[in-house]
């Protein structure tokens, strides 16, 4: 069985053009790879001898965890949008703002850029993430119409972008700590801050549980990216 060299590595220059076959996975070679430190071991070994991580050639149980965290995240996301994120108390009034309500108010006040940041981080990213994880989780079963590369790119985006949803929770934290001017004006966090934070954490755990190696297993015959 052939082993390919890394793209761009020193010794490879001459080989690059010659490598025409598809890459083989560690599993096909009878090996199990450590996803933490990239070292490979004979199949059947339980722990990585270099970094100590648990070794699993493919984590099929991971899909149950993906869906469990996904559902928990969705469940937390609904109240996060219905309940207020912020409560603003002034001398005579108390105003409550949901995530979307707060963004709309910002936009009405002329801060379109900041309103866009909030809407992207708190609505577009979470909703897109629910869709993307579900799509990826379903796509590893059965025949694939979408290439492994496209789906892998999507997975990378979900992993990279997901954390940024936390912005609005931090905004609420800062405002609640800072805007405490006695009876003049004070801001307190609303219950949505908790459920929204939970939703972000759960979807991060869902994405982390996903074994991205499964994406390429069905498309193993595909030509390499280089």
């Amino acid at each position: 069985m052939p082993v390919v060299d890394l793209a761009g590595a020193g010794t490879v220059g001459a080989v690059t053009g010659a490598v025409t076959g598809a890459a083989i996975s560690a599993r096909d070679a009878g090996l199990v790879a450590c996803t933490r430190c990239t070292r490979v071991w004979p199949q059947g070994q339980a722990r990585c001898g270099r970094c100590g991580s648990r070794l699993r050639s493919r984590d099929l149980h991971s899909m149950q965890r993906v869906w469990a965290w996904w559902a928990a995240g969705l469940l937390a996301y609904v109240p996060a949008n219905l309940y207020p994120m912020l409560r603003t108390h002034t001398l005579f009034t108390t105003q409550e703002n949901t995530i979307v309500g707060g963004a709309v108010e910002l936009a009405a006040g002329g801060s379109l850029g900041v309103a866009a940041v909030i809407l992207i981080a708190s609505v577009a990213i979470p909703v897109g993430k629910f869709g993307a994880i579900a799509f990826l989780a379903i796509s590893i079963h059965g025949r694939q119409r979408h290439s492994g590369h496209r789906r892998h790119r999507l997975y990378e985006m979900v992993e990279f972008v997901g954390r940024w949803s936390m912005i609005d929770v931090f905004v609420v934290a800062i405002l609640s700590a800072l805007v405490q001017l006695g009876s003049l004006v004070s801001i307190r966090p609303g219950p949505a801050a908790v459920t929204f934070a939970l939703s972000v954490v759960f979807t991060m755990l869902s994405a982390q549980s996903f074994d991205s190696r499964l994406i390429f297993d069905q498309t193993g015959q595909e030509q390499d990216a280089a």
């Binding site: 390919v4 890394l6 761009g8 010794t11 599993r27 090996l31 492994g148 991205s212 190696r213």
Partner: peptide, 29 residues
């Protein structure tokens, strides 16, 4: 001397790129 891509499990022969360079997975980049 073998490494497997942690994202896609493609097996490679580890080789250090020139300092400042990047060695990428042949399958997923």
């Amino acid at each position: 001397t073998l490494i497997a891509c942690h994202q896609c499990d493609a097996l490679h022969r580890a080789a250090e790129p020139p300092t400042g360079g990047k060695a990428r997975c042949r399958r997923c980049g």
